[in-house]
Design a protein around this nucleic acid. Structure first.
Lengths: 346, 346
DNA sequence: TTGAAAGCGCTAACAA
DNA sequence: TTGTTAGCGCTTTCAA
């Protein structure tokens, strides 16, 4: 039981191999009767083209790599789905590369992808560096990078950046409207670009208020663990810090939903009534956010859209490499749920 | 800037192309001086072999497909990591295929993987069918399937099955020791094999007790949504059903952690003190389980190990296809945390 | 111990 | 409109 090749189809249809190729790829006009014979042979022989052979001959593989730092991070779920959906729709297959926040591992993956001659790579790992993008570029492979600080890659890759300003502005306005005068901010260490950009957006939003509320910054280092990641545990710690403040903030805005949930749970454990005693705003809109009680008000990232956008950008780049330097911006915006409420009058 | 090929290396080293191939693959003895020359050329030219060309010539691709139903399901996080870790360590790359609980989509992926000549496929999607496995087998591609009911594929694939008996036995024993006499079971619809197997394990565990506690089955259909999936919302509904029972069960065992968390949160919303008023046991040991308060006692699935096991089995199969019919069993076992406690004496 | 050469299954000039 | 054929970059048999 050998593999059925294009040649088998050609022989059975009584045409040349190149005709077969052309009817399959619709790459030149073939007379209807001839075409039908070919199609019939393909059916009869259950012929399936070898993508490998095709790749070797055509010099592109219809495959792409997706570099992320952690499949376990709820941020990525929908991003992956978005990427996959447009990939599948375009005949592309995705190599998933999970760096696990490890630069060496990331570089290994890059090499593997280059060796496999993928047509493009999407960088969504916060733990990436310029060398990686450059290595990819040096091998004339296209790439799209989620703009997570560090070096400027806009000369050699398309980028996607998230506009947090809108979201934070809406969040602060929302709280101010509810009467909050002291708003805390909880995030990881500012040395991380991902944190800095959010913090800046928060500060700008505060400053933009007609009568700015007081902004209080919870101690960063206590909240985060090694690597700078913050999670639910970070929320517990953030709450402790928050509860200790003398005039207590009446609201808190966080840099991610897990952190917000941690604060929420810690607050409840401490006997707070939510949201009356403390308004909480998250960021990301992970799945859980709408499933806990009270449901979490959060600055939502259109994650599925980001995934689709990234893959579409990559496809554009692959199809017309000239079209570089398109920096796409996606906007984060507030979703109001039940974890925020009017501050209690005294 | 053309690609550096094996031929370039051969020319520079003054040897034949086949010698280069052999030193790279260590597939025949090459005199030390010759070998050094080749190695030096490789370095100097920064030569990297084309996996595509290699695949075409050698008829295997060092790539594999991983079919799962939903990246968003926390069950898969570590499974994926496990698969990836051993894949990476063995020079394999993984095509991630997210069926989204959709059979058609699954079949599309299968075809794509077959066309790409992957060396093997791991089926971890509950939404798979015999046709898929058979299609893969018909193309002489190896596969490992997570034994999620349906048809028997043991003749054409290696399988992994989870032993739930141990876990449920430990769970029931644990509750009995704590004095529980009425234990509820909350799960999705029994028509799903995944649910049935767990339910059976629960019933067996109850029956095995010296003095069996009473087993109460919460209404399945109310708990699950379309497709039979149960999540946090299901937990809320399960709790309502549970709270309505006349002599209230003092403990509940669920078929997954999300369900357990839903019950936990609903119970707290209803003013229960946990775990005193209700002991709750989950299943899976998802990340959240150890991060909520009270931390969740749960029947843990060694998910990372399952991933590693699956990929290792696949590699074995690829290396020696004869070695089929190895059905591996992994055991689920209880992790005791804080969501279970002694039943209050009256 | 090494080299020559015939593929692997397809694409894409170039001819006809 | 169709066919011939030279690769794509590598593996592997067969000879030397």
């Amino acid at each position: 039981m050998k593999r059925v090749t294009m040649n088998d189809v050609a022989v059975r249809a009584g045409v040349s191999i190149s005709t077969v190729s052309h009817v399959i790829n619709q790459t030149r006009i073939v007379e209807e009767p001839t075409k039908q014979k070919v199609l019939e042979s393909i059916q009869a022989l259950k012929y399936r083209p070898s993508i490998i052979a095709k790749s070797l001959a055509s010099q592109h593989t219809s495959s792409a790599g997706l570099l992320i730092s952690d499949v376990g991070n709820p941020f990525y779920d929908e991003v992956i789905s978005g990427v996959e959906d447009v990939a599948l729709a375009n005949g592309y297959s995705i190599f998933l590369c999970n760096t696990g926040y490890d630069l060496n591992r990331g570089m290994k993956y890059i090499h593997s992808l280059v060796d496999r001659s993928v047509d493009g790579i999407i960088f969504m790992s916060s733990n990436m560096n310029f060398d990686m993008v450059n290595e990819v570029h040096a091998n004339s492979i296209q790439s799209v990078v989620m703009d997570w600080g560090g070096t400027d890659v806009s000369k050699i890759a398309s980028t996607i950046t998230i506009d947090f300003n809108t979201g934070f502005q809406e969040a602060v306005e929302h709280l101010v409207e509810l009467g909050h005068k002291r708003i805390a901010f909880a995030g990881g260490p500012s040395r991380l670009w991902t944190v800095r950009i959010r913090k800046q957006a928060f500060q700008d939003a505060i400053a933009d208020c007609p009568t700015p509320p007081e902004a209080i910054f919870l101690p960063e280092e206590k909240i985060s663990k090694e690597g700078g990641r913050v999670g639910i545990e970070g929320g517990y710690k953030a709450f402790k810090a928050l509860a200790r403040l003398k005039p207590r903030p009446t609201a808190v805005i966080t840099t991610n939903d897990q952190l917000a949930l941690g604060i929420m749970w810690a607050a409840r454990d401490a006997g707070y009534k939510l949201p009356e005693d403390l308004s909480i705003i998250g960021l990301d809109d992970i799945d859980l956010a709408s499933r806990v009680t009270p449901t979490l008000t959060t600055i939502a990232l259109p994650r599925y859209e980001i995934g689709k956008l990234a893959m579409n950008s990559l496809l554009n780049l692959i199809r017309s490499p000239a079209q570089l330097n398109n920096n796409q911006i996606v906007t984060a915006s507030l979703i109001i749920r039940k974890s925020t409420s009017r501050v209690l009058g005294k």
